[in-house]
């Protein structure tokens, strides 16, 4: 079995005439990997490149041994964008049933996904009547359909209740323990401690790539936010 799930090499992406990622190299393996950095640092662009929906200027991205975005990967990656990306005029289960039919997975998967994101009590509610947090969980449920080998989640915990946020991180770890790779982005530094491995990102570059404990130890800091600041100040501008 392959050790790494995602291999990025020399990835350059220019958006609106401005380079967002420049010659990025990265390897991501199993477990829960957190991609942390301030808003606008290129996290979403990197995630989109891994899913294969981002127009890439140069470099290669391979996922599970296939080029990112290629047809064999399309039912093996679960992807949650920052938009809710569900139909607001359909109920929670109608949304999930539709995406399940597209993926060719059974109705039992719909029930499993609804339970996993704790929306069983809202399963017949119209998506448009849900709160922002509930809506992002519907979107997450769609990504869980069919047990993908790679989950790419772009800020899935924004605006959620702390209890729910803890539950979701537990879910991410259960999914990773079952053998999948989970890649989660966040701009909230206190979520860093929940990851097996951490990628700190700033201005399109990865400034640290290690376990949370190792990053803190190397920077001589007690928390990730301080470590992030130390790394930024130590690096040449």
């Amino acid at each position: 079995m392959m050790k790494s799930t995602v291999e990025v090499s020399g990835l350059t992406v220019v958006r609106g005439g401005r380079p967002v990622l420049t010659g990025l190299d990265l390897v991501i393996g199993k477990g829960v990997t957190g991609l942390l950095g301030p808003s606008g640092c290129g996290k979403s662009t990197l995630l989109r490149s891994i899913v294969g929906v981002q127009r890439v200027d140069s470099g290669t991205v391979s996922v599970l041994g296939e080029p990112a975005g290629s047809a064999p990967l399309r039912d093996r990656i679960g992807y949650v964008t920052q938009d809710s990306s569900v139909y607001l005029d359909l109920s929670v289960t109608e949304n999930l049933r539709f995406f399940a039919r597209v993926l060719g997975v059974g109705a039992d998967e719909v029930d499993r996904a609804v339970e996993a994101v704790d929306l069983t009590s809202h399963r017949d509610a119209l998506a448009g009547n849900l709160s922002g947090g509930q809506l992002s969980r519907v979107s997450l449920a769609v990504a869980l359909l069919g047990k993908p080998d790679l989950l790419v989640l772009d800020e899935p915990t924004v605006g959620l209740d702390p209890v729910l946020r803890r539950d979701l991180w537990e879910l991410f770890h259960r999914i990773a323990d079952a053998g999948a790779t989970v890649l989660v982005s966040s701009h909230v530094m206190d979520e860093a401690e929940r990851c097996d491995r951490l990628l700190l990102m700033r201005e399109g570059r990865i400034i640290a790539d290690d376990t949370p404990a190792a990053i803190k130890a190397a920077a001589g800091a007690d928390d990730i936010e301080t470590a992030f600041l130390a790394l930024v100040e130590a690096s040449p501008a």
Binding site: S84, F99, L103
Partner: peptide, 13 residues
């Protein structure tokens, strides 16, 4: 514009 098209095209659609 809602992102559902992007999601669908990332699936086997």
């Amino acid at each position: 514009s809602s992102g559902t098209l992007e999601r669908l095209l990332a699936m086997p659609m």
